[in-house]
Amino acid sequence: MASITLDKVGKIYAGGTRAVGDVSIDIADGEFIVLVGPSGCGKSTLLRMVAGLEAISEGTVRIGNRVVNDIEPADRDIAMVFQNYALYPHMSVRQNLAYGLKNRRTPRAEIERRVAQAAAILQIGPFLDRKPRALSGGQRQRVAMGRAIVREPAAFLFDEPLSNLDAKLRVTMRLEIKELQRRLRTTSIYVTHDQLEAMTLADRLVVLNAGRIEQIGTPLEVYRKPASTFVAGFIGSPAMNLISSRAVPHLPAAAQAGTIGIRPEDLSVAPDGPLEMEVLAVEELGAQRLVHGQTGGERLTVAMPSDAPLSDTLRLTYRPGSLHLFHPETGRRID
């Protein structure tokens, strides 16, 4: 158990390419932090710097109260779950789980106790003597997590652990990871590009874009008050509508000549609403219906109940207080 502190961490590759810059995060003991962003935003690089698999070019990383910049991965007291699981294919599940403990000269009885315990928690007991290739995707995923928890490390690092699973299994495993972390109370850093995974798992989200932090906050804070147009467009599904303020009549003066963000679920059909939308396409989701259209030359998406009336043009209104205002040049939030 430990806190993790990143202080002005940066990564510059040989050749001068900057992958990550000026990242500072304080992670409390037992906290579940999710690093989220589009591919290439530097989130995996950041995680790998914490793990010790990439050299840290700038700043310091602390685990507990120890600076780990020059400490080998093995001595950082962390465990990592890889995207492709990275199970040792020539070892049985039991050997996979025990390998890290054996390398640390843990007594044999203690290894057996911890392997049995992890197997019970993750329900992989029946597969302990199988090779990884004889397991399904979800079982492999569990073994990979088992390998992390037998070590009883100070922190778990997850590098997109669910992206190789099919959609249904991903939802199940997401819940399992969450419950497991609740139970073990181990500080965790989790990397994903899936905003839904990020929202559901995180105690706090760190939204990254082009190697820099856009926003840090609880899922609801980030959802309700996105700090920039990037965060607004990335977090939440369907994505927030970002339109020029000129397309929306009767706005307060402060919002003139900026970018307006409206969540699709904050828009609703009203006969005397201020916005008129020409309907272009309709997506039925079952409980909900997404209507895509345009207003004043801007694209707009509306989420509405599937029994709401449809026509070629709709008059829309927005929930009071649901407008997000962003600076036209910097894209930062204006409050």
């Binding site: 698999l53 991965p73 093995a74 492709n84 390398n103």
Partner: peptide
């Protein structure tokens, strides 16, 4: 041999020589 296997072994506390004999050579 995927790089992540050697990385996983490094995190599991195996030094370069150990990694070679435990992971690389069998694979």
């Amino acid at each position: 041999i995927p790089a992540s296997l050697r990385e996983a072994a490094a995190i599991d506390g195996a030094g370069p020589v150990r990694r070679f004999f435990d992971i690389t050579l069998p694979l």
